[in-house]
Design a protein around this nucleic acid. Structure first.
Length: 150
DNA sequence: GCCAACGTTGGC
DNA sequence: GCCAACGTTGGC
């Protein structure tokens, strides 16, 4: 799950009293479908910092509420407001996540690219701009192993 | 349904 | 700031 740290970083999540946030603001249909249909309570996700000096994986979050309508789409004051979404026919979805772990060191995009076994990872594929992406079990394990000892 | 124009993402 | 690689919009 990607976030621009200037907008919302893993430290922002840690600083939240309950260390919980709604992952609102996703406005892409493919990513929406994952939020709505696939992501389950108990799922773990990497928290990825994008559009920053050193992009990469900052830590891990756990899903504590599966897909439900993203009400920021109905909020006129929100930067995520979408006039085409209504309460009756919500267009966008979100999930709630809780902080699980922050890596001692960020696992940079460069570092991920240097690992041959991760070559097929969706995150590393050319032109991929999705903010929510599946991670395969073996990819998860490889990345998690890097963090052992970090 | 096609596709040109435009907008967005995100690494560099 | 640049630009590749998308996604979206809207006229036809």
């Amino acid at each position: 799950m990607k976030s621009e740290p200037d907008a919302f970083s893993i430290d922002d999540l840690i600083n939240h009293p309950q260390k919980v946030t709604s992952w609102e603001g996703v406005r892409n249909y493919q990513a929406r479908n994952m939020l709505r249909d696939q992501i389950q309570v108990g799922d773990l996700a990497f928290f990825y910092h994008s559009s920053t000096d050193i992009p990469g994986i900052a830590g891990i979050v756990e899903v504590i509420r599966s897909g439900y309508p993203d009400v920021s789409a109905l909020d006129l004051q929100s930067e995520y407001y979408d006039p085409k979404s209504t309460a009756k026919h919500p267009r966008w979805y979100t999930v709630d996540v809780r902080f699980k772990k922050k890596f001692q060191q960020l696992i940079s995009l460069n570092q991920l690219r240097s690992i041959p076994a991760l070559a097929d990872m969706q995150l590393l594929k050319k032109g991929n701009r999705l903010s929510i992406m599946a991670v395969k079990p073996n990819e998860w394990q490889i990345i998690n192993n890097i963090t052992i000892g970090l």
